[in-house]
């Protein structure tokens, strides 16, 4: 289902939505566990935080932010088409608008997260 290409942007939009969903779900579980740790054993949490602040940690945070932003924007696209069916005619156009917003918001966002790595 996920790997059989059925053509067109609609299929790719759907696959990305599902892949980003699984990634965010995994992080949500990790994130609740780490915050639970902050309450129970603050020292272990602070050690884990050192990873979150490191270069590999920041690269993963950029990926998480990208998954979150894509999922949020494509979610709005789904809502528009579900509750205003005529807009389904423009499903490709809405997807391209999503990518424009994704780049406009995402590039500065990634820059802010990666800034400490480059010392700026």
């Amino acid at each position: 289902m996920l790997f059989r290409y059925r053509g067109s942007e609609g299929m790719v939009a759907w696959a990305f939505h599902r892949i980003s969903a699984i990634g965010i779900w995994l992080f949500v579980m990790l994130h609740v566990l780490d915050i639970y740790l902050a309450g129970g054993n603050p020292k272990v949490y602070d050690d884990l935080l050192k990873f979150y602040g490191s270069t590999p940690g920041r690269i993963l945070e950029v990926l998480l932010g990208a998954a979150l932003l894509y999922h949020a924007l494509n979610g709005i696209r789904i809502l528009i088409m579900d509750f205003w069916p005529r807009m389904t005619l423009y499903h490709k156009q809405i997807w391209y608008v999503n990518w424009a917003i994704f780049i406009i918001v995402g590039i500065p966002g990634a820059f802010i997260i990666m800034r400490p790595v480059f010392g700026i």
């Binding site: 902050a38 949490y45 602040g53 802010i112 400490p116």
Partner: peptide, 14 residues
């Protein structure tokens, strides 16, 4: 991630 930075978000800060 934008307003604060993860490197400073220790358990004491939380």
């Amino acid at each position: 991630h934008f307003l604060f930075d993860p490197a400073n978000e220790t358990s004491q800060w939380i």
